[in-house]
């Protein structure tokens, strides 16, 4: 009989490899891709796609894809701050829509993790469509790790 080993609870996190491997699922439908990262933040890009329009008259993207973008950017921000991947779930996410996204432009989302406790990660972020000084959305939220972050 071979020894049974539990799968590791966490492992080193590399955002570029993570996004290269994630073409399937909702993120794949939205076409969300990696742009940049730092020690506690990640910047992702949501390309403009007519299939994602929420306001047909003005050609403006629906808010759902922007919510998905910011959920992913802030989630990756948590793993970067931890320097390792931990399974976790979004507890809550709030978005303030500062102005509509411009039709035809990609949305850039930057998510940051500013505090981690034993089981909760606190995140915030902004989304813009070309000029970071003129954001389209601001987010704040929390994630929870059922087995703890540390």
């Amino acid at each position: 009989m071979s020894a049974v080993t539990d799968p590791p609870r966490s492992w080193p996190f590399d955002p570029t490899r993570f996004f290269a491997a994630r073409a399937a699922g909702h993120g794949g439908l939205l076409g969300i891709g990696y742009r940049d990262h730092g020690p506690d933040w990640a910047e992702l890009e949501l390309p403009y796609d007519p299939r994602l329009i929420g306001d047909v008259e003005r050609g403006v993207l629906a808010s759902g894809p922007i919510l998905a973008l910011m959920d992913m950017a802030t989630s990756v921000g948590v793993w970067l701050r931890l320097s390792s991947f931990h399974p976790h779930a979004t507890l809550d996410l709030r978005i303030d829509y500062l102005r509509p996204a411009t039709a035809g432009r990609s949305v850039i989302g930057r998510g940051e993790c500013y505090r981690i406790t034993r089981s909760i990660a606190f995140v915030r972020g902004q989304a813009h469509d070309g000029d970071p000084a003129d954001p389209i959305a601001h987010v704040a939220g929390t994630f929870m790790a059922p087995e703890g972050y540390r």
Partner: peptide, 18 residues
């Protein structure tokens, strides 16, 4: 597949959009 997050679960963004 369009609304899949981690394997076997709905994506939070798709759920928020809904």
């Amino acid at each position: 597949n369009e609304v899949l997050g981690r394997p076997g679960f709905l994506h939070g963004g798709a759920l928020g959009g809904l």
